[in-house]
Design a protein around this nucleic acid. Structure first.
Lengths: 210, 210, 210, 210
DNA sequence: AATGAATGAGCGTTCATTCAT
DNA sequence: AATGAATGAACGCTCATTCAT
């Protein structure tokens, strides 16, 4: 009985399983391409229950988008960079960002898809915007400390640094297939990752340093 | 009669129209999301004729991919950078690349889609690889001249510089919707473009310069 | 607390609200087309409670049918026609019938739907039949008085007169959309109603009079 | 081979079969209640082909509406009433109308459904309106001849006569289930029909006669 | 070279009802 | 008396592709 009902009458658990399955499915196939059937299967439930708990596919997709960004930022604020010197903090932030992008390709794929939809859904969620405010605050603190210490330029905008870091980290994940097919020299994957990680840190530091 | 047959008995013209319509459609909706019906409509023909001339959707998509990369590189080699100083050449290359990305969002969208498909189709076309070889050659020449002139570092890899430039230029186009929704300060679009263009040039030069 | 529970713990009030909402919904969409969800919403409750109080959709529909016919006949017997002369009584009956049809389109729509179902549900309710007996009795009395007074024919059957009146009154409401679309001359609605009302009275009187 | 392909490559025949099946289905269940699957089955084809030939359910329904009215009017104009005396022509028109209604309950059911939809679809077809113009013209001719002959009143409007006839004929078919359940005296169906037919003729003649 | 007809598989969503408290 | 969770069945419609000329 307990086994039979293992997955019954636990709506919160079910919603969580559906959400996580949906992240996978939307990452793989996008908002339109993902199939409720597949999401249901991954969550060990039925299409019917997905609709029951999330209303429709679009609402589920928005919930996924919110989940993705919340995780990204939660990880970032947990880094505790304030105890490091500006250069060390900046380097660690870039490395952590790079690693997070690299280890969470599904999140990056969801963001790619959303951009292909011209941000049609992210625009609808005020919650996503508020969740992301921490990103610039955190970076701004490091830059300010660096300027005060005389090691960082005072003519770089916070948002530009964020964009630079994002560009390199995101590109490494999102464009890897075409870029490596065209320009890859068959290097081992591990080497390639290390090289790109180094590029991210170096390019950023050279951009912000005096 | 002539008017009635304006679009008949011109298979090459029809194929060209289908291909251009397909670029639009695949850019908008990706390989899976694009609809033959819509491509046919854009090309002022029928679904049946699209299949007739290109066999199936996948073959058409590969033809589109080849078309996209050929255009990108053709534009690049036409820049005639050899006559400029290394710094000027590098700056102009970045600016040109940035502008080309910005003015050809459809091409970038196709590349995004292809990466979401894990490069499944680009891998199948040897022609695309050969077409892209010019990119690194061109950049390598500038870097070498810069090193000879003593203004560029000799520890930067060509492919890394290409990746850095691509990252920033691509991100500006491909991630604009999410990035600007989350971190945009409602700046005018024109200002934003100018700022990002400047970021691309500056970050690249600081990365390669002594 | 009182406000919060305003609509709670009043099962009779809730049942009444559900029934009235059901009349609307079944009138709008028929037995099959009506949605429990919509009925629940109109009654400010949940689908679950509709089922709880009425068992299932069919039982609720039968309750609605009974409600409809009871109202129709209650109104008719309240006319107090016995004090009028036969002609006046007949005219007033027709006018009252016409007006009741015109002002209660929802009831007529329910009856239409039920006929489209071939009377499948009305047949199940003995109560409806007994409730309707007053209609012919009332009309029969007028006709008898008219014959006694020498002003009405003695070769018209009561049920035929009832059918004639019903036909015209019902048609005015139930067929108005197709009939007026096809044969309407864009007359003001008020004029059209007056004209049809006059037709009902005149045709009936000419049918029954010597 | 011939047998196997009996029902293939005959798009006109297929469209006709689908249309006739659709009349049945829409008559039985209305626009919303009818099922494409059932229509397809009746027409010995697939749901897919119904959509292929008619676009969607609503377009098919409109085609059915047009078919229904076209048949009704075609039958009417074929009566050749001009050769009869006004009274005979009027009587024959009413009888023919009554009989047509009685023998084509499906058409009446479709019209009922359409009125329950508030004429939403009939309004969309200009063709239906033009097809129906013959009805009033035909009746107007009889009335005019009757007035000229001195046997018909000159204060009855053509549209009112049409409405009166339609009311009785339509009611006989459309309201038979509820009316006979409530007021029927278990007469044989044949007697009942004859009685109602007589009522239609008599009530009409008494309405129009001097 | 070109095309109308045909098709199987599958999708997101809806709905009345039952389960389990 | 009241309710959140769950569910099977079905529906209209879409799509890339093939058939047959």
């Amino acid at each position: 009985m307990a086994v039979q009902n293992k997955r019954k009458n636990d709506p919160q658990g079910l919603k969580r399983r559906i959400l996580e399955s949906a992240v996978q499915a939307f990452a793989e196939s996008g908002m339109q391409g993902a199939r409720l059937e597949q999401i249901a299967e991954l969550a060990d439930t039925t299409k019917r229950m997905v609709v029951y708990h999330f209303g429709n596919k679009e609402s589920l997709y928005i919930a996924v988008l919110e989940d993705v960004y919340q995780h990204i930022r939660e990880h970032e604020v947990a880094l505790n960079l304030a105890v490091l010197s500006p250069e060390e903090a900046m380097a660690k932030l870039v490395e952590a960002s790079f690693d997070y992008h690299a280890t969470h390709p599904d999140y990056m794929r969801v963001i790619c898809s959303e951009n292909l939809l011209r941000g049609r859904y992210i625009r609808q969620s005020a919650r996503i915007r508020s969740v992301n405010q921490s990103a610039l605050e955190l970076l701004d603190d490091i830059l300010q400390r660096g300027r005060d210490a005389g090691c960082f330029r005072d003519d770089v905008a916070t948002v530009d640094v964020h964009r630079l870091i994002s560009s390199i980290c995101f590109h490494h994940v999102s464009n890897r297939y075409t870029f490596n097919t065209l320009f890859g020299d068959n290097a081992q994957d591990r080497e390639l990752v290390a090289q790109n990680r180094h590029l991210a840190v170096t390019a950023t530091l050279r951009y912000v340093s005096q």
